[in-house]
Design a protein around this nucleic acid. Structure first.
Lengths: 217, 217
DNA sequence: AGTTGTGAACTGATTCACAGCC
DNA sequence: GGCTGTGAATCAGTTCACAACT
């Protein structure tokens, strides 16, 4: 079962949540979980869970449920979490520092190769074991370590330029924390996280009294 | 036009992005924008933009487009961005510090009333003008300032407990940065941001070579 | 000509419901 | 009895296409 076929977008979003929940269950020592059980913990129907997982093969056991270790392994493989990912952070402001200091990333297979900034006052400081290097090192860092992922943690005004530089240097995917939409060429993956927008969504739910659906928000 | 009717969920998610883009355009001095223009900048079709906005009334001008100031005002009102929101941050680790120091929030109408933590080594430190207070102050802070929003910036193991405390104290919406799904009672809004999941989604796109759709990811 | 607002058609996702298996 | 996998039915969101307006 080498490459999965065409996956519905909403399914793709839920996969990571399945994995997170399965790992939590594994820590609790549970060995098996049903689509109903998994769905309940995630606010999904049992049918939804089964349909999602069935996209990739049949790893359930009728009458029993899903083996947690087995399914975890499958999901890790599907999501690409069975390999190591290399990443570079540009921007050593508040967000960049928080990322650099966030230990859990390494456990999950994301290795931060370097943290860069162009502010001379910041270069040389250390965060989470990374000494901040000059932004001009970007290209050599990416090339030498074959870095695949770039994290944009600079202010909005610099974000597009930084992303362009990353991509020019060879990065294949960008995680953007700046509050702008970045234009990227075809074939480059992008995901954005915007604190202000998350807060706005929350405020909007509050003003409306919306039902608390979760995913992707 | 007091309360809007039932809004499709995907529309609700896009609203904040419309507002962000409109504000960016306003800064550039543009006065008017068409559904096509707005859609292009956000990776949406013109029809999509019009349908979304039409949910709330008719603020477009045939042959001309949408007045940027006018539409910005409407969206601010719809999203609840015309009022001030009060928030409290619990957890003064990496993420909590980054949030406390993030100046842009105040501009957007989100006022951080206090930053709390239960670690004696951290209490008393200052971040972004906030002195970290003991976590036991939560209830009094929320009651005294009628705080509506709670930001959970603690490790996974403490997140549910902190959220429960916030809600018991009177908070109405929770923005969760911990990598767990929080259970909240009906009527409480919740939005989650999980760095690991964002990175996983990105890695997944990379392994698949998926088209770069954007929203909610 | 350019653009909005909207019903109708279409596309895609979710839920239902049940056969087959443990 | 409990559970999965899946075709069929339903539901929701998007796109189309066009009348109305400037």
């Amino acid at each position: 079962m080498p490459v999965p076929p065409n996956i519905p977008r909403p399914t793709a979003k839920r996969l990571s949540y399945y994995l997170r929940e399965l790992e939590a269950q594994a820590d609790l020592g549970t060995k098996t979980i049903s689509s109903k059980g998994l769905g309940e913990r995630l606010g999904l129907t049992d049918a939804q869970v089964r349909k999602d997982l069935a996209c990739f093969g049949q790893f359930g056991h009728p009458g029993v449920g899903y083996g947690i270790d087995e399914l975890t392994g499958q999901l890790r493989r599907i999501l690409g979490m069975d390999r190591q990912w290399t990443a570079v952070v540009v921007g050593a402001g508040n967000i960049g520092r928080a990322i650099a200091s966030y230990g859990r990333l390494a456990d999950k297979g994301f290795e931060i190769i370097a943290v860069l900034d162009d502010d001379p006052d910041v270069i040389g400081l250390r965060f989470g074991g990374h000494e901040v290097r000059p932004a001009t090192d970007l290209e050599s860092v990416v090339r030498e370590h074959d870095v695949r992922i770039g994290l944009v943690a600079v202010p909005a005004g610099a974000a597009q330029r930084v992303a362009d530089n990353m991509i020019a240097a060879g990065v294949r995917g960008v995680l953007n924390f700046a509050p702008v939409r970045l234009a990227v060429p075809d074939g480059i993956a992008i995901v954005s996280v915007d604190l202000t927008i998350s807060l706005e969504q929350l405020a909007f739910k509050l003003t409306l009294g919306m039902p608390s659906g979760e995913f992707g928000t």
